[in-house]
């Protein structure tokens, strides 16, 4: 019996790792995808969209299996609720990546080369903040004392992303030669990418509370 329980647990540990890997990978794909879009490599861009959509599907189904197992096998009774919430919040990051990149595909905004650097930077910081929350979450499962080492970086990247995104929006609205609708459209894209870092920070705030609860 004990062996059975242990084996099941190893399975669930692997699945959680896999889930976290998926989110981390999606961040990289997102970054590459937006880069391809800005550089006008449409084929690459479309391939990345496919990849991210696929990752999002796998993430959803993994999350559902995990949730089911947690409840059916009544694992970690005292942190079960927290872990479920964490998984759902992390999954919403995947949704954010997918939503943002699809928006690019649907609207195909015209982004002038002078904004490229800033856009790339916002994307980079958003992805970094997600990467940090993934590291924090891994630590939450494996080594709770190390969570703090990663968590503070989430806020750092979020602030950086905020700054760049504000500058970008300012620059967009200073461009009198663009139509208002065009400016509003570009601003929405800057905001949507920046929003990913905000969501990551929200996840980190919740995670900080789970950590306190667990160490009580």
């Amino acid at each position: 019996m004990s062996k059975g329980i242990l084996r099941k647990q190893i399975g669930i540990e692997k699945q959680i790792d896999e889930f976290l890997d998926l989110i981390s990978e999606s961040g990289l794909i997102f970054k590459a995808g937006i880069g391809a879009y800005l550089n006008g490599k449409t084929d690459d861009f479309l391939r990345k969209i496919e990849q991210i959509t696929d990752a999002e599907h796998r993430g959803d189904s993994l999350r559902r299996t995990l949730e089911e197992r947690l409840y059916i096998q009544t694992l970690i009774p005292e942190s079960r609720g927290d872990v479920l919430e964490l998984l759902e919040n992390l999954d919403s990051l995947l949704d954010q990546f997918k939503g943002a990149i699809w928006q690019f595909e649907i609207e195909r905004p015209e982004i002038g080369p002078e904004f490229h650097e800033d856009f790339k930077e916002v994307v980079k910081y958003a992805v970094e903040s997600v990467e940090s929350i993934i590291l924090s979450s891994r630590a939450f499962f494996k080594n709770i004392a190390a969570v703090a080492d990663h968590m503070h970086k989430v806020s750092y990247w979020e602030t950086e992303s905020d700054k760049v995104s504000s500058n970008l929006q300012r620059a967009i609205f200073r461009r009198k030669d663009l139509s208002m609708s065009h400016r509003l459209q570009l601003r929405d894209f800057a905001r949507q990418v920046d929003n990913i870092a905000d969501v990551a920070e929200d996840v980190a705030d919740r995670l900080a509370i789970y950590v306190i609860k667990r160490s009580l």
Partner: peptide, 20 residues
């Protein structure tokens, strides 16, 4: 637990086994 960096789920199963 801190020193050995035991995974949450492994700790869960170890505790359960110990309680049994």
């Amino acid at each position: 637990i801190k020193f050995m960096k035991i995974h949450m789920f492994k700790l869960d199963s170890m505790t359960r086994y110990g309680l049994f």
